[in-house]
Simulated assay, not measured.
Amino acid sequence: MPLKRSMPGLIFCCFFVVSYFSNKYVLSVLKFTFPTLFQGWQTFVGGLLLLVSGKLGWVEINNFSRSAALSWLPASLLFVGNIYGGSRALSRLPIPFFLILHNASEFVTFLIFKLVQRERTSWIKLFSVSVLLVSAVSLPLYDPQFDPGGYAWAVIHFFCVGGYRVFQKSSHLSDLEQQYINYLFSVLLLAFAAHPTGDLFAAMEFPFLMSYKFHSGCCASALLGFLLLLATVKLKSVLPVEHCGAWVFLAKVLAACLSPFMFDIVVNIPTLCCLLSSAFGEALLVYSERIAPER
Rank of each mutant, 00 (worst) to 15 (best):
C13W: 05
E242S: 13
V29G: 10
I156R: 08
L250F: 14
S171K: 14
R295L: 00
F98R: 00
F32P: 07
K213F: 11
F159R: 06
F110M: 10
P2I: 06
C244Q: 14
S174H: 03
G85E: 01
S171Y: 15
P260H: 02
E294D: 04
E242M: 05
F249T: 13
L184G: 15
G85D: 01
A279K: 04
R5F: 05
L101R: 00
K213M: 08
S170P: 11
G162P: 08
T271P: 03
L189A: 08
P207S: 09
L189I: 04
G47K: 04
K4L: 09
S28C: 06
G245N: 11
R120P: 01
L228F: 11
I100R: 13
V241Q: 07
A75S: 12
A193H: 12
L50T: 10
L189E: 02
L275H: 15
I83P: 14
G225D: 03
F79T: 07
S28G: 07
L3R: 14
G46E: 03
S67R: 12
K169R: 15
V286R: 14
A194D: 12
C257V: 07
P240Q: 08
F280N: 11
L228G: 11
T109G: 13
L285D: 14
F280H: 10
A104P: 15
K213S: 07
S186W: 09
F79P: 04
A292K: 13
P260A: 00
C218L: 15
Y180A: 05
Y164Q: 05
G281P: 11
Y164S: 07
L173F: 08
Y180S: 09
S6G: 03
S135P: 05
F32H: 10
I83C: 04
H102Q: 13
I269A: 04
L200V: 07
L37C: 13
S170I: 02
P74M: 10
R120E: 08
P270E: 02
G163F: 09
T197R: 08
L70I: 12
M7I: 11
F16D: 06
R290Y: 10
R295I: 00
T197C: 03
R120A: 00
F107R: 03
L10C: 11
D143C: 10
K31Q: 15
S19N: 09
L209V: 00
L99F: 08
V266C: 06
S186V: 02
F206S: 12
F97G: 08
A256V: 10
L190P: 12
Q179C: 01
F21S: 03
F206R: 11
V233A: 15
P196T: 03
I95N: 07
E106L: 13
L223M: 10
P144I: 01
R290N: 13
A152D: 06
R5C: 00
A68Q: 14
F167D: 12
L133K: 13
Q168C: 09
